[in-house]
């Protein structure tokens, strides 16, 4: 269980998070949604220990995250950040192998090899194994990085906008993979996602943020409705039932033709 109590974060005089108290349920996919500048990524970076909170307490499995040794924390929580530029000369295989670093410190065992193979097979990346990461397309590269994160075999996965700049197919592939990680392997997944439809259709739990505070949170079915989303995004929403799940239409909702 990851819990945050009264967490604040400020860069100089600018407050990015103010008094955030929230829990992330174990064994579920939680989507952090909200407009730009809401503090979603900052919140994720605090949990990943890539930044430090200005105030408040973050706990992982009942222990303050600052008390975990760096190496042990890497065996509990894996984080995937956006990878805009990557100019290292290494293959997909070598990249995924880095996921085993917290365990093997660079000297791969047969066990590590097996886990790397499994992670690559899990995302069906066998054909890309020998290719260089800097020569892959954006979608393939994101899949390769996800494979590394999976190979880290942590109970918790944090992903910062994993669907950014991806085509529809790769976006669906990534979300399906996350769903399977959660359902088949019992991993807890927390991700920042901008596409409200992916958030609504693939996750179990929603944490909605705006201007550094949590506006609402809870199971998808309970919290996704037109009023809440309109208040959150300052946009009109129309929620339409689909064959499976539902579609949040904000492109051109029939309710009101004009924006506020």
């Amino acid at each position: 269980m990851i819990t945050l109590s009264h967490v604040s974060k400020a860069y100089g005089p600018k407050a990015v998070l103010t008094d955030v108290t929230v829990q992330f349920p174990t064994g579920r996919i939680t989507s952090l949604i909200g407009p730009n500048g809401a503090g979603k990524t900052t919140l994720l970076m605090l949990i990943a220990r890539l930044q430090q909170a200005s105030a408040g307490e973050l706990c992982l499995d009942g222990q303050a995250i600052g008390q975990w040794a760096v190496r042990d924390y890497a065996k509990r929580v894996a984080t995937l950040r956006q990878t805009p530029d990557f100019n290292l000369r290494l293959t997909v295989d070598e990249l995924v192998a880095f996921g085993r670093f917290p365990y093997s410190q660079g000297a791969l065992t047969a066990d590590d090899r097996r886990i790397i193979d499994e992670a690559i097979a899990f995302l069906s990346l066998e054909a890309l194994r020998g290719q260089y990461v800097d020569e892959l397309s954006g979608g393939q590269r994101q899949m390769a990085f996800l494979a590394m994160t999976i190979a880290q075999q942590t109970p918790y996965l944090l992903l910062d906008e994993p669907l950014n700049n991806l085509d529809m197919k790769h976006a669906v592939l990534i979300m399906r993979a996350l769903r399977r990680l959660c359902d088949e392997h019992g991993r807890t997944v927390i991700l920042v996602v901008h596409d409200i439809n992916f958030a609504a259709n693939y996750s179990d739990h929603i944490v909605a943020m705006k201007r550094g505070t949590v506006r609402f949170c809870g199971p998808v079915a309970e919290v996704i409705d037109e009023t809440r989303l309109r208040e959150l995004f300052d946009l009109d929403f129309e929620i339409l039932p689909a064959g499976r799940g539902f579609v949040c239409n904000y492109f051109n909702p029939s309710l009101s033709p004009e924006l506020p």
């Binding site: 990943a48 220990r49 890539l50 984080t79 290292l88 996921g99 670093f101 917290p102």
Partner: peptide, 21 residues
Amino acid sequence: TLPVLDVLALGRDQAIVLGVD
């Protein structure tokens, strides 16, 4: 520290995520 250097080449964030101080 040769293996640590390899991880440092991935950048600060990735190194921390992989358990490097």
